[in-house]
Computed example of a mutant assay.
Amino acid sequence: MNTLIKLEITRTLRNKKFMFFSVLYPAALYLLIAGGASTTEIVEGTHLTLPLLMMVSMASFGAITAVLVGNSEKIAKEREKGWVRQLRLTALPGRGYVAAKVASAAVVSLPSILVVFAVAAAVKGVRLDAWQWCALTGAIWAGSIVFAALGVAIGYLATGDAVRPLTMIIYFGLSVLGGLWMPTATFPQWLRNIAEWVPTHAYAALGQAIERGDAPQLKDVTLLVAYLVLFAGGAAWLYRKDTREA
Rank of each mutant, 00 (worst) to 15 (best):
I64T: 10
S112C: 05
L218A: 15
S175V: 06
P111N: 04
T49M: 14
R79S: 08
L174M: 14
I169H: 00
L177T: 10
A246F: 11
D242F: 09
L150S: 05
E41C: 07
V67G: 03
P183T: 05
L89E: 00
N2D: 04
M54W: 04
L48Q: 07
A205S: 15
L228R: 01
A91Q: 06
F231N: 08
A76M: 07
G36C: 04
M55K: 05
V43K: 01
P26T: 01
Q208M: 11
L206I: 07
L157K: 04
K124V: 10
G151N: 05
L218C: 09
L110I: 09
P93L: 14
T39Q: 13
A246H: 11
A236E: 05
L89C: 08
H47V: 09
I210M: 11
M54L: 14
R85D: 12
Y97Q: 14
Y25G: 01
P111S: 05
S144L: 09
D220M: 06
T137G: 11
K81M: 12
V126F: 12
A226F: 05
T137D: 04
A34S: 13
S104Q: 01
E196P: 00
F20Q: 03
I42A: 07
K241A: 13
L224R: 02
A27R: 03
V107K: 02
V163Y: 10
G35W: 02
T184N: 10
A99S: 10
W181L: 15
M1Q: 08
P26I: 02
L150Q: 04
N2I: 14
W141V: 06
G143T: 07
T184H: 05
S72I: 06
R95P: 00
A148G: 15
V176E: 02
M1S: 12
G233W: 03
M1I: 11
L177G: 07
I33Q: 00
A130K: 01
A59H: 07
R212V: 09
P51M: 13
R95N: 07
L52W: 09
G151P: 04
A205M: 09
Y227H: 05
E44R: 12
A120K: 02
E8L: 08
G178M: 12
L223R: 10
G233V: 09
K219W: 13
L7D: 03
Q217D: 12
M1L: 12
M19R: 01
L50Y: 02
L180V: 04
A153P: 00
A235F: 09
